[in-house]
Write a protein that binds this DNA or RNA. Structure first.
Length: 773
DNA sequence: AGTATCCCCATTTTT
DNA sequence: TGGGGATACT
């Protein structure tokens, strides 16, 4: 027997050894799913299957990287880097880079992130003369996104009775038209959004038999992780790819399906068994992660859902401690309590920061936890903030790189055409866009032929200079790698210099971010990559751009750093921690008020609760607050109904607040409850502190403007006569002295020190000043 | 062209 | 409450 099979239980081993034919592994939480997947791939390779013939699809880059690493470890060689392991999106993007021309896209197509996509939605909504207040880009985009995830194109959308009815009822009958215009615009821009990477992949396989044939035969073995979270588009693609060999192995857990709002459907599990003959189903029911108590609670919770795949998770682990249920007066108290408890876990049980996770339903809840952790000097990392690549300065820089690779990328072009200021203002940009739409050419083509479109002479010169600059960058593409080009762009354009000259704290930070970006590009070009299909590691700028859009902020954080991890429950899926806090177990928050209207929604919330509980290995705290600030006003919340689904016997009653099961909110001032109140701060002390902080931050430290009544004889002077050192009167700011004169002749700016209002920069074209002396 | 200000609006989000 | 976007003002 191979060494790698030794650490497996019977079921796991069976899953690994079943290499041929369709296989569905129902893997309960903590049942060693990743171990089975990685061992199975390693086994395939040990049996002589070529790594080039194996495709493994995951949902996160992290999961993909981990799998790759573990397989390499099992095999002890470098073969694993020839595997096609990655997220659905990154693998399809890679294939698209070779095939996109077939569906009319440039092979160096741009990938639009959600911000880009929404911006395009907004632009086309405006162009259709629809009100963006009514057709909210966010909502419209989400609707388009679900359509694509169900493989519904614009034409089908507009003729689909049910969808049209829905839109009519919402009084948004034009969404189909926006969708159509959006798709056309993306195509014109040579850009695909995240959903297109699936949608277009499907179209490619569907309409180009030779392409389908090629990949069907390439991928003899296909493995899908987190199968319960796949959407119809992903399902159909897998079905097409796997149709020849039918060696499709899917791994999932219906109890952990928490992404239906993104189009995922558990139907795929049922459909899988219908679409393939003789699907072998293996259930992994032994949990290796959690204590018996935690597992029992999880089982009790999920019991309340109807229609689960029957399975009973069990463990040979110790019984473990009971869980701790804590009620606090306010959300801030909850934060304090958690920070205190973490301190206790560290001191008394010698846990490290990284052993602890704080999980919550919504990102907004992180604030109270952050504040208390900071106050106690407990280092933490928040997951789910904006990604490095979403920062303005980074997006600006990347927009330059994007326009070099794909000049049709209008979103990128709009971003940088006048940044830094080069005299191509809003009016000119609008004119260019209009001309592009009217002539059905790209905005870039308009700029290239600017003399034909009636720009003013000055603008024309500016545009010509800009076009020349981008062209000169573009000419570097065939010979230079990503770093060389990026570095050159940074040197040649003034905006990096501008950032460098900004010595404010944020300015310095922005400059450092740009440096970091360049470093990461350098790292990209210097790290050897997989040599898939004989391709040499792609160090081109296009290759770089393709991968960064698909990175998330979780990919940029070091999971091993010794910090407490704060994240939403969604983000915590697949992770485990010795100590887990789940906060905000309140009606309206968890289950969330937006998701209690149907049984399906409520059951998904419950699965979310199931996921949070099963993240814990040994210690689990659940907390909820009586009152919590929401959008600035205080809200009363009842304890979550999910708390009632936990049998009393698993709850630590000796613990503060633990015995509280009377959730009426009244008549429960038992001793434990009082002790808790005293220990973790009560509503009495909190508002005081809050007031203090808010006065410190708001208004008072801002210099107040002192009103000035202009002199009766106030007459604006000729600003060209202004000189340094003159005393002047300003209509609003009063009297002051001119410290400095700068700016160009057509836009002069004066720095004036006002007696009452401090230093201000005044644009002389607009402000009215009277020279006093 | 840049900024200040006002007003509006808020689940979850692997990519 | 607070962040973003449109608008108004300089």
């Amino acid at each position: 027997m191979h060494d790698y099979l030794k650490g497996l239980n019977d079921r796991q081993r069976e899953a690994v050894l079943t290499t041929e034919g369709p296989l569905m592994i129902v893997a309960g939480a903590g049942s060693g799913k990743t171990k089975v997947l990685t061992t199975r791939i390693a086994h395939l390779m040990a049996q002589g299957v070529d790594a080039f013939n194996i495709l493994a699809l995951t949902f996160t880059n992290k999961a993909a990287a981990e799998m790759k690493e573990r397989i390499g470890h099992i095999l002890g060689n470098r073969e694993s880097r020839n595997l096609y392991i990655g997220t659905f999106h990154s693998v399809f993007a890679r294939i698209m880079r070779a095939e996109a021309h077939r569906i009319g896209y440039p092979n160096a197509f741009t990938i639009y992130d959600t911000d880009d996509a929404k911006s395009v939605v907004k632009a086309v909504t405006n162009e259709l003369n629809l009100d963006v207040q009514h057709y909210k880009p966010n909502a419209v985009y989400n609707r388009i996104s679900s359509a694509k995830n169900s493989l519904v194109g614009p034409k089908e959308y507009m003729t689909d009775y049910y969808l049209q009815q829905e839109d009519m009822r919402a009084n948004r009958p034009m969404i189909g038209h926006i969708y159509d215009a959006y798709s056309k615009r993306c195509f014109k821009n040579g850009a695909m959004d995240f959903d297109d990477l699936l949608f277009k992949m499907y179209e490619l396989l569907k309409h180009f038999p030779e392409v389908l044939h090629k990949y069907q035969h390439k991928f003899k073995y296909i493995l899908i992780d987190e199968y319960q979270d796949t959407n119809p588009a992903q399902y159909e693609i897998i079905k097409l790819l796997g149709a020849v060999h039918e060696n499709v192995c899917v791994v999932g857990d219906d109890a952990q399906s928490i992404y239906s709002f993104r189009g995922a459907t558990i139907q795929n599990i049922l459909q899988f068994q219908k679409d393939y003959d003789e699907v072998k189903v293996i259930k992994l029911e032994q949990n290796y992660r959690s204590t018996q108590n935690i597992l029992s609670i999880a089982n009790e919770i999920i019991k309340n859902n109807k229609g689960q795949i029957p399975k009973t998770l069990f463990t040979e682990n110790a019984t473990g401690e009971k869980i701790k249920l804590v009620r606090t007066m306010t959300d801030n108290d909850e934060g304090k309590f958690v920070a205190d408890a973490i301190q206790e876990q560290k001191l008394r049980y010698h846990h490290n920061n990284k052993d602890v996770a704080i999980l919550y339903r919504t990102n907004a809840q992180s604030r109270s936890f952050e504040e208390s952790l900071r106050r106690m000097n407990i280092p933490y990392t928040i997951y789910g903030g904006i990604s490095f690549y979403q920062r303005k300065e980074i997006k600006d820089y990347i927009a330059y790189l994007r326009i070099i690779v794909n000049p049709k990328d209008e979103e990128a072009l709009k971003r940088i055409i006048n940044y830094p200021v080069r005299g191509i203002g809003k009016t000119s940009v609008d004119r260019a866009i209009l001309a592009a739409n009217e002539n059905n050419i790209s905005m870039w083509q308009v700029l290239e032929n600017a003399q034909m479109f009636g720009f003013k002479a000055g603008t024309l010169t500016a545009i010509e200079e800009f076009v020349l600059m981008i062209r000169s960058f573009h000419s570097m593409l065939p010979t230079k790698n990503a770093y060389d080009i990026a570095f050159h762009v940074g040197k040649q354009t003034a905006f990096v210099k501008e950032l460098f000259n900004d010595k404010s704290t944020e300015g310095v930070q922005r400059y450092e971010n740009v440096q970091e970006l360049l470093n990461s590009i350098k790292e990209f070009t210097e790290t050897p990559m997989s040599e898939e299909s004989g391709e040499v590691g792609d160090k081109s700028l296009a290759g770089y751009l393709q991968q960064i859009t698909l990175l998330t902020d979780a990919d940029q954080k070091d999971p091993d750093a010794d910090t407490v991890k704060l994240m939403t429950i969604h983000a915590a899926k697949g992770l485990e921690f010795p100590v887990v806090f789940v906060g905000g177990l309140e009606e309206g928050l968890f289950p969330n008020a937006m998701s209690i209207n149907t049984r399906e929604e409520l059951e998904e919330e419950r699965r979310l609760f199931y996921v949070s509980v099963t993240r814990a290995k040994g210690t689990l705290y659940l907390s909820y607050a009586n009152t919590r600030y929401k959008f600035g006003n205080l809200q009363q919340n009842d304890p979550s109904r999910f708390i009632d689904e936990i049998p009393m016997e698993f709850i630590d009653k000796s613990f503060a607040g633990g015995g509280v099961k009377n959730h009426s909110g009244q008549g429960m001032m038992g001793s434990a409850f009082e002790r808790m109140q005293r220990g973790f701060g009560s509503a009495k002390t909190e508002p005081k502190e809050k007031t203090f902080v808010s006065t410190l931050l708001s208004g008072n430290n801002k210099p107040k403007e002192v009103a000035h009544v202009p002199s009766p004889n106030f007459v604006p002077s000729d600003i060209t006569k202004l000189e340094q050192g003159m005393r002047v009167e300003h209509q609003k700011f009063g009297f002051g002295e001119v410290l400095k004169l700068e700016g160009s002749s057509h836009n002069p700016v004066a720095t004036i020190k006002f007696d009452e209002n401090g230093e201000k920069k005044i644009m002389l074209n607009y402000a009215k000043l009277m020279i006093v002396t």
